[in-house]
Amino acid sequence: MLKICRITLTVTLASLLFSFASHAIWYESSGQAVIHNGNKQQARQQATQEAIKQALLFAGASISTIQHLTNGLLSDDSIEIRSSGEVDNIELIDEVYDGDILTVSIRADIFPQKIECRAADYQKSIVTTWYPIKHRQQATVGNLFDFGQYVAVNFQQEFNQHAKNSHLYKVEPYYLNLQNGEPVVVELAHKTNAQFVLLAEISELSTIQNASNRLAFWQSPTASRDFSLTMAVYDGNTGDQVFKKIQGITSIWEFDTHESLDPSSSRLWRSEFGKQVTSLLQNLTNEIDDVLSCLPAFGRVLYVSNDQININLGQQDGLREGDQLTLFQMSQFFDTRGKLHQQYQLHPELVTVTQLFTNTATVTSVSGAPLANIQANDFVARR
């Protein structure tokens, strides 16, 4: 059996995060293989096949077609990988010989499928904070200056009740603004061991006094209240935004406009206004859960002890003993036009889960080979 010495994968962050879009995505990857008995054609085919397979599995996609490569020295080869997507085109970028080691670099144009994704087997962990009120003077009616705290808590309850592919496991007890940016997002995710960070802002909480009906002059004037929530979800490893939406409601405000309310009270949340806010939170839950379902399931390396690695994924994330994961390191670079890219370098050895705990796990090499060059804050991903 041909031994693959090293697989190196380079993709843009946008390609990785949106690998299930309806359009094709370009992936560049390179693989090394040993040439046995001078059989360069076999080594070339196997190295190319392994590079494509690793790139697809890492990105959460997969393929099912047989492709005949018509680029340079690959013209007589074919590759078959049975899974659930389609490779539209493969281009040969480079082919380098160094003794009995062959390195093939390719670029593949891939149409992933939406209906299946292996990453959906794992729960995505989310952390959030309290939600600030953009125009605080609007909270004067009802004395709801702390309303953002309880919207966040109620959203956590709704999310964990209705979401299927992710869980909002923590609400940090302080406010963060949507404009805080990448460094704060990454720091919060790292501190709480979350894969995604959800930030939100109550962008509207205004009240409108409605005029009473002249034909029913004995009735008291009624009021209505607007509520809008701006919500964004970020990848905790990179700080990149993966979801953003503004959603709002207008509801009857059945309380006296001079009355102070407890923002956590069932009286408020069982009112028509409270019910509509809850419905809005449920809608956002479904949308966010759908977006996150097929994104890669990333975890961090917490520490390395001999040939065992402890990671921050566990039972609550859907991990099971025997699951196989890919180790990788991530770096950033700017191209000649100043555009920032993410680069992922996969470790040649797969790891398997040998011990499982609530929110951590111990993994070891599948082949038993030493796990060289792995350190804390490197990453693991679901294959």
Rank of each mutant, 00 (worst) to 15 (best):
M1G: 10
R6W: 08
I7M: 05
T10L: 13
F20T: 11
F20Q: 01
N37Y: 13
R44D: 11
A47L: 03
T48G: 15
E50V: 04
I52L: 14
Q54R: 15
A59H: 02
I66Y: 04
I81W: 12
E86N: 05
E95Y: 08
G99F: 08
I101K: 12
S105Y: 08
P112Q: 03
I115A: 07
C117G: 06
T129G: 09
W130T: 06
H135Y: 07
L144F: 01
Y150M: 00
V153K: 08
Q157Y: 10
F159Q: 09
L168W: 05
L168K: 03
L168Q: 07
K170Y: 12
Q179K: 09
P183R: 09
K191T: 14
Q195F: 03
E204Q: 14
N213G: 02
A216L: 12
F217T: 06
Q219V: 12
V233E: 03
T238L: 14
D240M: 13
Q247H: 05
G248C: 03
E254I: 00
T257N: 04
H258D: 14
S266G: 15
V277L: 05
N286G: 04
E287D: 11
S293F: 06
C294N: 02
L302T: 03
Q308A: 12
S331N: 13
S331Q: 13
Q332R: 13
T336S: 10
K339I: 02
K339R: 05
Q342E: 15
Q342I: 12
Q343L: 06
A381W: 00
